[in-house]
Design a binder for these strands. Structure first.
Lengths: 338, 338
DNA sequence: TTCTGGCACTCGCAACCTACGAGTGCTAAT
DNA sequence: ATTAGCACTCGTAGGTTGCGAGTGCCAGAA
């Protein structure tokens, strides 16, 4: 019983099931697949694969379909395919027209959903450590202020902060000017100490401390982590084939974002080029029947954000991995040079 | 043949079909509904209603279901219900915690999707005509600049503009300062002439004109019109009942936004308190089997944005209309006072 | 006129049955 | 280690049937 052939059988089963969405039987494999053995031999191999828990049969007289573990082994053994040349061109032309960070992210997520024909998710790039260009404080109503931080790398972060109680207009104005002066030219991590020192030098009312905190927060992280997604209709198309009722929880989880973000963080830690989570591996009930293919992107080795594709476990893994990797690469290049 | 009873029959059919999702027959109506007539009478009324094109039967031996026209008449004749007291409280508590314009919009859309159990859409409030607080120009790369406009009403708009060719650093800086000085304190509509005058006084290179245009654009409209939505899983739930394959195009149209925006614009023109589009009335193929309930909100009578709920034509119109109206009202109040 | 009871008729649907065939596991032969 | 053959399982498609919900129409009552 050649180990190599058993692997080939597993691969053939995965590929067959992915393309036809029907269980694949031993006879069909013997005919279409090019391993030169008879169906009986394949049956023996299948029995062994089933013993290992890599494939299963939905009912007694049906062919085999891969289990999560089967997909897992397949993915680990297959290198992601090369991307077709026209697709490569599509990526460059589509993304190079972007004028804006928002635009880049939005175009990327659409492109990825079209390439993979899955739901695509792109996490907003984590901000780089770059000098503050200007801090603007604008009074809103009597007890709130708007904090705007413009960084040298073209990022604009904004947020509001409560002032607690009435603050005289002129006092607010002078403090705003002073805070701006302290911040300009400093990197976010230098900001904390510098502003603390300023607070000590000028004994201000308590509201100033809150404002300072808000400024530091905006400069550091800025907007809350978030992901954008596109191509949810691909989910509906996939759900048409089999489980219609699995789509609701997935849509909910996508909107919720929090589960998805946790998963992406976990996957970021794995360090691989492209990482894949299959079915139950996700740990989340909503994604129990979906797989996620993700890759990091970003300017440095550090400081990565993630993007990926999400679809039914029965997906074209090599193709999806190739598309995800390619988009991640181009996106890295763009984020770097911007 | 009392006209009133025929109306009552139509209403009973709509309500029955909405709550059970099954065609409703004359016998069932005679028993459950409280019109004191026999099933035969109801059958006659039904025949008349069918003649008018208000109801139809899916097959010969089934009950009747309302047509688009039937829903339309029902909606026109029924005032939107009053909202339950706990729901009202939910709106106030849920929305009053918001800290931010983004936060308000996001909370609203979630709330509305929960109240209606439909897909909720909220259009970003159209900016008010309020004075410019500061204009910031930041160089990005060699031939692009970031334009940030902060308005007195706590809005921050940003965009990029191409500079065409190399511009000396000091020339850019002085121009940026000058542009800011010209803009501060002016309303967006005053901005155009003022900046044009400035351009004439100081004969600048061509790049300045592009920058000026960008500043005016950001001050006026700012970010492109867009809508956010939530509760797409409600679509999946509804699709479970009947047509699974109608959900894909709807999801696509939601992501595309452009069709939805056109529809909302059209509905804004109708001037009603709450306006309803039913099925084919939408004109868009994707929404041929869905209805949209929308209401305007905003600070003034002018200057309204829209929000609404979108679901299958077989929806609880009175309840949805009540929820949409209530959220629109509270949202108006919040946007006003902010 | 308007409503009601009665009756014949239609027809979708669920339940049931059956035959088919794809697919399997096992065993004996190569 | 592989293969051919064979008996067996079982899901599914196709066909048939009976039921019952629902209708339209008509004659008689209010």
């Amino acid at each position: 019983m050649s180990e190599d052939r058993r692997r080939a059988v597993l691969h053939a089963i995965v590929e067959g099931y992915v393309s036809t969405s029907e269980p694949v039987g031993s006879k069909a494999l013997a005919e279409t697949s090019h391993l030169g053995v008879s169906s009986a031999t394949i049956r023996n191999d299948m029995a062994a694969l089933e013993e290992e828990g890599l494939i299963a049969q939905p009912h007694t007289s049906a062919g085999r379909i891969p289990t999560d573990a089967g997909y897992r082994r397949f993915v680990d053994q297959v290198a992601s395919a090369a991307l077709h040349e026209p697709h490569k061109r599509a990526i460059t032309t589509f993304l190079s027209d972007a004028v804006d960070l928002n635009d880049v992210v939005e175009r990327s997520v659409r492109l990825l959903s079209q390439l993979t024909r899955q739901v695509a998710v792109v996490q907003y790039p984590s901000p780089r450590e770059s000098a503050v260009r200007r801090v603007e404080l604008v009074r809103i109503g009597v007890d709130r202020a708007l904090v705007v931080v413009v960084s040298a790398d073209a990022r604009v972060e904004q947020g509001t902060v409560g002032l607690g109680h009435d603050v005289p207009e002129d006092e607010f104005e002078t403090a705003a000017r002073a805070i701006n002066d302290v911040c300009v030219g400093r990197t976010p991590s230098e900001l904390g100490p510098a502003l603390a020192a300023w607070l000590q030098r000028n004994s201000h009312a308590s509201w100033a401390a809150a404002v300072v905190d808000a400024v530091v927060a905006q400069a550091k992280g800025g907007t809350v982590e978030r992901v954008v997604f596109a191509g949810t209709s691909n989910l509906a198309r996939a759900a048409n084939d089999f489980e219609t009722d699995a789509i609701g929880p997935v849509l909910d989880a996508l909107e919720e974002q929090v589960v998805l973000l946790r998963l992406l963080h976990e996957m970021a830690g794995e360090g691989r080029d492209v990482s894949v989570r299959i079915g139950m591996e996700n740990g989340a009930d909503a994604f129990a029947r979906t797989s996620i293919v993700a890759a990091g992107y970003g300017s440095q080795g550090e400081n990565v954000s993630l993007l990926g594709a999400l679809g039914p476990t029965r997906m074209d893994y090599p193709g999806t991995m190739a598309a995800v990797r390619a988009v991640a690469r181009y996106l890295s290049r763009i984020v770097e040079t911007e």
